[in-house]
């Protein structure tokens, strides 16, 4: 979890600062996270429940929402419900899921709801800053664990020829996912595969799209079966 970017260097930072809303029901965690975030990130709002979160996001229209997967309130859907409730803003506001749970079921649910990435709460301040910039820039953030989930869910056999079906990963996407699962940063993945960082980001975004759009019911079933990961 601590190797989203590691020593791979920060993502290209946008010129303007990033506006962020933190949604987490633990005040201690919120204040800790706020203190950890880089100066280029402005926390414009905080929320502790599903209702508060939807209201604050609609009011502030932040660039990025740091969203806890488990939240009180609403209909019990947690982070997933917040994303669903903010669906109208999804083009401008991006969600980065934070969790202590590590349960595949939770993670896959929140990603499929529309989150652009998933990191665990033990992540360091520098790494979370980096992840926020990356998500703000439109990229996906995959932790090694999320890459592991993807490989487990989609299987490790590549799709036939260059078909664009959603149920399988291409050989290249598999390679990228494997390297991320092994703890490689995007930069290291690029170096290892002799491709540019931009291409790595494109592959990761493609995998994220498949994860979100794949209609195979096995994905949800798989996640439900694997409670512990």
């Amino acid at each position: 979890m601590s190797t989203i970017q590691g020593t791979g260097g920060p993502a290209a930072r946008p010129a303007k600062s990033v506006r962020v809303v933190i949604v987490d029901d633990h005040a201690i965690f919120r204040s800790g996270l706020k203190a950890d975030l880089d100066a280029g990130i402005h926390v414009v709002g905080e929320a502790a429940t599903v209702e508060q979160a939807i209201a604050v996001i609609a009011e502030q229209r932040p660039d990025v929402v740091l969203l806890d997967v488990h939240l009180p309130g609403g209909l019990g859907g947690g982070g997933r419900e917040v994303i669903a409730g903010s669906a109208a803003l999804l083009s401008a506001t991006r969600f980065l899921a934070l969790s202590v749970s590590d349960a595949a079921e939770d993670v896959v649910a929140v990603i499929r709801a529309g989150a652009r990435g998933y990191v665990t709460k033990t992540i360091s301040g520098a790494e979370i800053t980096d992840a926020v910039f990356r998500v703000a820039g439109g990229d996906a953030v995959f932790s090694p664990r999320l890459a592991g989930f993807v490989l487990d869910a989609f299987g490790t056999a590549p799709a036939d020829i260059a078909d664009d079906e959603l149920d399988k990963l291409s050989a290249r996407e598999l390679e990228v996912m494997r390297l991320i699962a092994r703890g490689y940063s995007y930069k290291e993945v690029a170096k290892e595969l002799f491709i540019s960082i931009k291409t790595v980001e494109t592959h990761v975004s493609a995998v994220l799209r498949k994860l979100q759009l794949s209609s195979r019911h096995e994905l949800t079933k798989w996640a439900a079966e694997r409670r512990l990961l």
Binding site: S2, T3, G6, T7, P144, G148, L151, T156, R178, A181, R182, G183, Y184
Partner: peptide, 21 residues
Amino acid sequence: GTVSVYLEASDAQAEIFIKDR
């Protein structure tokens, strides 16, 4: 620092990668 361990096991083989920085 943090050590990353990745295990991929299938019917054909088991692979383990241990990475440090």
